[in-house]
Amino acid sequence: MIEKKKGQVRMMETLAIMFIFFILVAMGMGTYYGFKKSSIIQEREDLFAKKAIDVSIKVSFMPELACTRGEAELKSNCIDVNKLIHLKDLMKDKEFQDYFFDLFSYANVTVEQIYPEKKEYVIYEFPKPNWTEVSETPFVVVLKDDKKTIGNEHRFGVLHVEVFR
């Protein structure tokens, strides 16, 4: 009888050890996946913010907007006002909308002139339906109007890019 009970106790001991072992493993996995989840969420946020920067870079280097020097070279961070005005109107065409959607996806792109006078040009407006989050990147740019006399052709502006998810 005593031997039987000894055997049963041993069996229960083994089972208890295994149970605790698996509990510890589960706790370890839970902690690991908790850390992994928070780093994935952080990475997702970084990529979302980066998306706005990517769109800003694309806009500032667009031949449809960028200033040229008389050769074919583009000037960086400079927007030709005379192209900007026409691109703003042409963006209402479906052909332009479809093409630039492949480039910008769900985003709003606005050029705001802040000096000498305030003006706003909405180049591209395509917010995501039922969007839940928006990330905005402002980018200081120079606007150039060749119609003005030399010395008066430059303006200051801000390129606003909003991306949605």
Partner: peptide, 20 residues
Amino acid sequence: TRMNLLNKVYEKKMKTVEEH
């Protein structure tokens, strides 16, 4: 394909230049 769209912008700019 891109050039087709870009030329439309430049066409309008050329008219602006002519008007100026």
